[in-house]
Design a protein around this nucleic acid. Structure first.
Lengths: 310, 310
DNA sequence: TTGTAGGCGTTATCAG
DNA sequence: CTGATAACGCCTACAA
């Protein structure tokens, strides 16, 4: 029997000698690392930065650290990051980048590493998923615009290979159909989620002989680009043109911007992603889960009824 | 002698069997981890997100991975993160958070882990430093405002314990003195780098019997807050009030914002920080370096000559 | 040149 | 219940 006193003494000595257990040795012995890997397309983007920060907070609470991987939208870099994290024996992987290669799938399955997808999905993996309800969010925007009397509504799409972008696009089309409005491909612009792409796409729409009275951009950054293009043309938002976005990034609430949009609960997304992965690490055999968060429609001043044609 | 053929055969087999060396075992054996730790105050802030992303890119090029630590401006969390990263035997530490505790210093020195500070500094450590020239940047802003005829220039300070915030503050004072303008503490507001704090501080300045004709905020986010406060009051920027910031964050260039500011080269900061730490890892005994990057003054439309008093 | 044993710092197991 | 020992997978030194 070790007395309480001895125990205390040992602890004190350890403290004094500043003894620190080697996580590396423990990792080798136990074949786990108490770390999770986060792989995202562009960590500098406020979208991912928010998610990362929420994941970090939750992971830290549970004694896990976060390994960061930035793919910069590069397939090869993504593969090498997955490989590298698997080599480091991360206990779980949170993926919020783009489409995986087959070899990535094989590698992940080989190590039996749990995976959580954020705002994207890949059915080749038995993984958890967390994301916003893009369909509901898009419907909110479209119903609002249509309700105000808009009939010619432009759309600026995001990166086509992303599930979220795809959902927003198809729901845009579906909403028009439901309202009995004919789809005109001319008012659908291509974007890549960047502000510059939104601006360029908007310019083309403004050049149309019959330009739209409202533009819905698949994310806020592109919507900001649309507003910038409007300023360039001397068009006033929302008097001359209504603009709506998706995400509700910080700046959308600024009175000089005041963008009508749909709120994506970024932090919540990250928090849940971390919760899911930590849970899965402890219960490898539980069935995979899908968590779809409801968005919230945020009405601001960038949308108004269409101007009467003269 | 191993023939080229055998070598190839072995490599092929390894490939086929999907053999991957265990980084953990190698780390234990070699007492290093091929990873660097980044500790920042708020990873979701675009400031840090940009730096993080640049660090990641550079580290990745050299086969290093990045461990993320978010202190959320919390001393205790910072200490535990430093401890944790030291336990993980990171090869180097990039610090861009707040003041270290004495015990942190001791722990870092004990392991002889190289450190690079970004935009802050602590002389208790023999560390490298990289940052912008806050003094030069602030002078640019102040000279511009004074040159336009402003005599009553408000200032909104950042977190006082940060070296950068302190430098911007003292240089504001110095610039006034140099121009022979008396300092009035009434037009100096306290902020914490957040947009909300800038807004609140601006409101107080607007309430003054003799409000300033221009406001210089110690960072762009607070400047956005100032602009928001101006909108609330029905004040037009720059006709009624000039606003200038510091950093040149993305949105500052948007035509609806068009903020006059000083560009901080975030990505460059991160890239250099990574270069310095990687170099120091290989050359532990080299003398510490300080890299101070020149800022660039960016004139936009938020600043104009002061309105004539009636 | 090639092969092998020892040790990095843990933890789990097993014998005493 | 305590204390010695093996094993995690790699690298390196040393022996053959």
């Amino acid at each position: 029997m070790v007395t309480e006193e001895t125990r205390k003494l040992v602890a004190e000595m350890a403290q004094k000698m500043r003894y620190r257990a080697s996580i590396t040795a423990r990792s080798l012995r136990l074949q786990r690392s108490w770390s999770i890997g986060l792989i995202a397309s562009d960590i500098a983007d406020s979208f991912y930065a928010e998610i990362l920060s929420a994941i970090e907070a939750e992971a830290w609470e549970h004694g896990f650290s976060v390994l960061m991987g930035n793919t910069e939208y590069d397939d090869a870099k993504q593969s090498r990051y997955i490989e590298s994290m698997l080599d480091k024996r991360v206990d779980g992987l949170i993926l919020s980048s783009h489409r995986l290669l087959d070899e990535d799938i094989v590698a992940i399955n080989r190590q039996n590493t749990p995976v959580v997808f954020v705002n994207r999905f890949d059915s080749r993996l038995d993984a958890d998923f967390v994301g916003v309800d893009n369909i509901a969010g898009t419907r909110m925007v479209m119903q609002h615009l249509i309700g105000l009397g808009h009939r010619r509504i432009g759309f600026i799409a995001g990166r086509a290979m992303l599930r979220a972008a795809h959902q927003r696009h198809t729901t845009y089309l579906e909403s028009l159909e439901t309202a009995g409005i004919a789809v005109d491909q001319a008012v659908i612009g291509a974007g890549d989620y960047t502000s510059a792409s939104g601006r360029a796409a908007a310019e083309k729409l403004f050049d149309l002989p019959d330009p739209p009275t409202a533009i819905f951009a698949a994310n806020d950054k592109m919507a900001l680009g649309v507003m910038a293009a409007a300023v360039d043309r001397g068009l006033s938002v929302p008097k001359d043109i209504s603009v709506a976005g998706f995400d509700d990034i910080d700046i959308a609430a600024h009175p000089l911007i005041s963008l009508t949009t749909v709120r994506t609960p970024f932090r919540e997304l990250g928090r849940i992603a971390a919760t899911l992965i930590l849970d899965r690490i402890d219960h490898k055999d539980r069935a995979s889960q899908e968590v779809v968060l409801p968005p919230r429609f945020v009405v601001r001043n960038s949308v108004a009824p269409p101007r009467q044609r003269q």
